[in-house]
């Protein structure tokens, strides 16, 4: 089995998009490109979320995971969602392999329990050793401002978890809306995520939340990265559709 790179887009937001392309469509597009889109909705205590449906749908069509959390639990959640999403992607891949061995519409559950252990071992092994690229897309609209220090903590926590793995990691950091543009790049691809507090924009235009364009930009960023490395890129794992 060829070891590839897992590509994720991690969207951290607190509400509904209101500008540009439909984010659910953009998430579907990202998935076609072999990325998964995971969404974390950050709430204030006592806050109810109107964007719930959208958050769920973005993750669903992006082949990823979504989770709503209060700001306080953000750290634990970000690393957990990222790792779960990795596992899910790898499982989808293994699932396909299994089907080619066992025949169609066979699930892992169709294996006797004693045989499942080996499948889990392979999933664990890949989750630990595969390279990972995460493009982090942060909603910095006015309502998110006071949550940004928590987001920052959560991202540092994420990097602690990912760097404890054996595989390599790369991160890129984007914010939306940007100061002048809809989406702004805060950090280009880098293996180390640190000093992020210095780069979060201090002030942003209130009112707009261009989630769709942000996702589109994320796809472009991945495309550029890939073409930069040449056409003979290492294989990536595609999410299976079931």
């Amino acid at each position: 089995m060829k070891k590839g790179t897992l590509r994720q887009i991690l969207l951290i937001t607190d509400g509904c998009s209101n500008q540009g392309e439909d984010p659910v469509a953009m998430a579907a597009l990202a998935r076609e490109h072999g990325m998964t889109v995971n969404v974390i909705g950050v709430l204030d205590e006592n806050e109810r979320t109107e964007g719930l449906k959208e958050i769920e749908n973005i993750a669903l069509s992006g082949g990823g995971i979504h989770q709503l959390v209060y700001a306080k639990q953000l750290s634990h959640t970000v690393q957990m969602v990222t790792r779960k999403a990795m596992t899910q992607t790898i499982q989808g891949f293994i699932h396909k392999e299994l089907q080619s061995i066992l025949g169609h519409d066979k699930e892992i559950e169709d294996l006797p329990p004693d045989k499942r252990g080996q499948v889990v071992e392979v999933v664990d092994e890949l989750g630990e050793t595969m390279d990972l690229e995460v493009l982090i897309m942060i909603d910095t609209s006015a309502s998110m401002q006071h949550k940004l220090p928590t987001v920052e903590d959560a991202l540092l926590d994420l990097s602690i978890s990912l760097h404890s793995r054996i595989g390599e990691n790369e991160y890129a950091l984007y914010a939306f809306p940007g100061k002048r543009k809809q989406v702004e790049r805060l950090m280009d691809w880098t293996p180390i995520l640190k000093d992020i507090h210095t780069i979060f924009p201090k002030l942003t235009t209130g009112g707009i939340t261009p989630t769709g364009p942000a996702l589109k930009e994320a796809i472009d960023a991945y495309q550029k990265k890939r073409s930069k490395r040449g056409l003979l890129d290492d294989g990536y794992i595609e999410e299976s559709s079931s």
Binding site: T87, E109, P113, R116, G117, V120, V123
Partner: peptide
Amino acid sequence: DSMSITSEVNVLK
């Protein structure tokens, strides 16, 4: 989730 149950069983075994 049979994967996580299996994962715990791997350790217990």
